[in-house]
């Protein structure tokens, strides 16, 4: 299957290459497909292939010892997977799972490193991509480490709660994230944590506050 060089060109890594270079680089990639739910990368295992998403969406996540999952990002067409182990030679720091049918383009570590050595522009782009990722992860670490995000999510829930009779403003997780000044992934994690503690229930399109007193206590303690 021929690699679509337009997809290569759309990625942050390979955007600096001209058409001729893209044709050459495209020849060393191979295509791999995954079905919904299939694990693409296992956290903690080694892998020697650099992947970029050609079609579909991939969940990138970490799993705690207790089995709790934290989504770090959603990789869409043009995004890359598994670049960290390709550079440091260590195990995958994250897992990756296909959210639907997914097509990936893969290139082996030795071939990718050869291309990097021959293209300073591509190497600089690689550094830029890794720097942007580091910045995103710093923000996630801050939000997940400190209590105030949970307090802000709780405040949003209490402020926007209705009685189930009169119409109230509905909110998406993205909107809650914007209001709380955090990432959507952190809101999702906060809601899940509140549900596990029995303070709320997620019932399809409804968030039911089942223990208002406890939520008010969290809010008070977070101030």
């Amino acid at each position: 299957m021929a690699i679509d060089t337009a997809i290569l060109k759309s990625t942050a890594y390979f955007s600096v290459l001209n058409d001729k270079e893209l044709d050459i680089v495209g020849q060393v990639f191979s295509e791999k497909t995954f079905q919904r739910g299939e694990i693409i990368l296992w956290e903690g295992e080694t892998s020697d292939t650099f992947f970029l998403v050609a079609a579909g969406a991939v969940k990138v996540f970490k799993t705690s010892a207790q089995g709790k999952e934290q989504i770090l990002s959603i990789a869409r067409p043009g995004d890359v997977l598994n670049d960290i182990p390709i550079f440091d030679g260590k195990a995958n720091p994250v897992g990756a799972q296909a959210l639907g049918p997914v097509i990936l383009y893969g290139i082996k570590r030795d071939k990718f490193q050869l291309i990097l050595r021959q293209s300073p522009g591509l190497t600089l782009n690689a550094i830029k991509v890794l720097a942007e990722r580091t910045r995103h992860l710093f923000t996630l670490v801050e939000d997940l480490s400190f209590r105030h995000v949970m307090g802000r999510v709780v405040k949003i829930l209490l402020t926007h709660a209705g009685d189930g009779v009169a119409p109230v403003q509905r909110l998406t997780q993205q909107e809650m994230a914007a209001m709380a000044g955090t990432a959507r992934e952190v809101v999702a994690r906060s809601l899940k944590a509140l549900e596990e503690q029995g303070y709320i229930r997620l019932e399809n399109h409804r968030i039911v506050i089942s223990d208002k007193e406890s939520l008010q206590k969290i809010l008070t303690e977070s101030i």
Binding site: A161, D163, G164, L171, T172, Q173, H205, I207, K212
Partner: peptide
């Protein structure tokens, strides 16, 4: 694409 939530307090 949005999936909005209605937030309600359980009686």
């Amino acid at each position: 694409l949005t999936c909005s939530f209605e937030i309600v307090v359980e009686e």
